[in-house]
Amino acid sequence: MSNWASQSETSHRLADAGEDASPRRSVLITGGSRGIGRETALLAARHGLRVALSYVAREEEALDVVARIVALGGEALAVRCDVAVEADVVGLFDAAEARFGHIDGVVAGAGIVAPALCLADMPLDRLRRMFDVNILGTYLTAREAARRLSRSRGGRGGAIVLLSSIASRLGSPGEFVDYAGTKGAIDTLVIGLAKELGPQGVRVNGVRPGLIETEMHASGGQPDRVARLGPTAPLGRAGHAAEVAEAILWLLGDGASYVTGAVIDVAGGR
């Protein structure tokens, strides 16, 4: 469970620092319309955060997440954004700041996978789109977060969480070596960016989910993957998106105030 400070505690601390004492924190989540991003958005709202989330094609699902947050008494915003397009990413952050005034946390969760293939059979357009979304998209999101959160640039500090995958350690041979490679790049970004932004009051961490029950497996052409591989994990089952969301919220919150440059496995021991 994350440990976000209460509104009164946050207001008091920011007032003492001479900053805008707005008591409510805000989080921006890319890929927030489904899977881990959706569960992270809903959990953030339950913790009292205002939520901006992005989507590409799943507008109805994104609006459903917003409606569920509003039903919880929260505040949310959904913005169409292809993270591989710089103008989209800048526009997403602009919209969040226009709505909430500031951003305190960023979760780079947008990513794609493709049907299982060996590298020798992967066409160039697949590789280019995989790298554009998963690597370039994450770097653009992290760059904008650095620009908006860094204290030397007028930000209030905060936290960034980048979504990696246990595939970065397993390699995903014969299936998704392209996807695995993109997540390895994210692991490296966590380490370097944490060192860059620590002096700016910004913590940067990553989460490596394992086999998680989400829609991504179907989009990768293996809708039975969870049922087939879940029992092979040391814990004997696949994970749930809500379990990954708990780790993300902890890394965003005050309970992880001395954690930066870390990548946490949420993978049932895989």
Score class of each variant (00 low, 15 high):
residue 26 S to I: 00
residue 27 V to T: 02
residue 30 T to M: 08
residue 30 T to H: 00
residue 33 S to V: 12
residue 33 S to D: 14
residue 34 R to A: 04
residue 38 R to F: 10
residue 40 T to W: 05
residue 43 L to H: 06
residue 44 A to Q: 00
residue 46 R to T: 12
residue 47 H to K: 04
residue 53 L to P: 09
residue 58 R to N: 13
residue 61 E to P: 07
residue 65 V to Y: 08
residue 69 I to R: 03
residue 73 G to Y: 03
residue 75 E to Q: 12
residue 76 A to Q: 06
residue 77 L to V: 15
residue 78 A to I: 13
residue 79 V to Y: 04
residue 82 D to M: 13
residue 83 V to D: 05
residue 83 V to R: 10
residue 84 A to G: 14
residue 84 A to M: 13
residue 85 V to W: 09
residue 86 E to Q: 10
residue 88 D to W: 09
residue 93 F to C: 08
residue 94 D to M: 07
residue 95 A to E: 03
residue 96 A to K: 01
residue 98 A to R: 15
residue 99 R to H: 12
residue 100 F to I: 02
residue 104 D to Q: 07
residue 104 D to P: 09
residue 105 G to Y: 06
residue 110 A to V: 11
residue 120 A to P: 04
residue 123 P to A: 13
residue 124 L to M: 15
residue 125 D to P: 13
residue 127 L to W: 15
residue 127 L to E: 11
residue 134 N to K: 04
residue 134 N to Y: 00
residue 135 I to K: 02
residue 136 L to P: 04
residue 137 G to N: 02
residue 139 Y to W: 14
residue 140 L to W: 03
residue 140 L to M: 03
residue 140 L to G: 05
residue 140 L to E: 01
residue 141 T to P: 00
residue 142 A to R: 07
residue 145 A to N: 02
residue 146 A to W: 05
residue 150 S to N: 10
residue 151 R to V: 15
residue 151 R to G: 10
residue 153 R to E: 13
residue 154 G to H: 12
residue 154 G to V: 11
residue 160 I to N: 04
residue 160 I to L: 07
residue 161 V to L: 02
residue 168 S to R: 05
residue 169 R to M: 09
residue 169 R to P: 02
residue 169 R to F: 11
residue 170 L to W: 13
